[in-house]
Design a protein around this nucleic acid. Sequence first.
DNA 1: CCGTATCCCACGAGATACTG
DNA 2: CAGTATCTCGTGGGATACGG
Lengths: 133, 133
Amino acid sequence: MAEHEELQAMRLLIDLLADKWTIAVLASLCGGGGAQRFNAIRRAVPTISQKSLVTCLKRLERNGLIERVVMTTGELAVEYRVTPLGRTLDDPVAALLQWSAMHSPAVRAARHTFAERVAADAGAWGREPLAAA
Amino acid sequence: MAEHEELQAMRLLIDLLADKWTIAVLASLCGGGGAQRFNAIRRAVPTISQKSLVTCLKRLERNGLIERVVMTTGELAVEYRVTPLGRTLDDPVAALLQWSAMHSPAVRAARHTFAERVAADAGAWGREPLAAA
DNA sequence: CCGTATCCCACGAGATACTG
DNA sequence: CAGTATCTCGTGGGATACGG
């Protein structure tokens, strides 16, 4: 799978994608042709909080995946756009997407099996172990 | 990139891989031919704590990616082995690995650029803003 | 050897209120 | 419109000690 330092490099990418909103934000950005304004993203990802969106955007910017562009029109307007580096995420994200489509049902099934097995184990030696606590 | 429900399925996979140790543990398991004993994994991933390893293994088991096998020899011995479902992770993980190899230097470079830019912005309007706090 | 139990801290993230 | 500032809570994870 991987040997030693590759793991560390991979953590970098995983940490990039792992937080709760990054993928959704990126999807919104790409959906908007690669650029969106702050509140447009908020509307596209309705359940995100302001704070989380700001944090998320800052991280993406810090890592060079998106760019923050202050528009020079009269009103205050800021646009976020995906950089070329950000575009390169398409490949790994596509791989994740494909795996999810193919195997996530199996994972859900495994969870149910596991839950039942645990319940059976609990029932095998005594009733209501939780009540004893 | 992705539209609506795919995101939720992807979260499942990301959550699987996101915690600090899963990838390393999986790598150790695969390195051991697909099966390793508890303390063998610990030695392979020296900086992990007992607690974290237990937690990590439980999650992997719960999601059907590995199997816990109690050996029926005299001494207490437990082996963890990758399931067929677990093997299917090779594809997405390989994609992550490849991206990391190709682009992680660019991310690190972006971080430095960003840090310098921030420092320049800070220096432009006043010295030692941190000292003021 | 293979864990469980407890304490403790850091951090992600929601809610809410305020500013340029 | 595009943020910043606090508060608070839940959880991940390290350290340590104990149990089967």
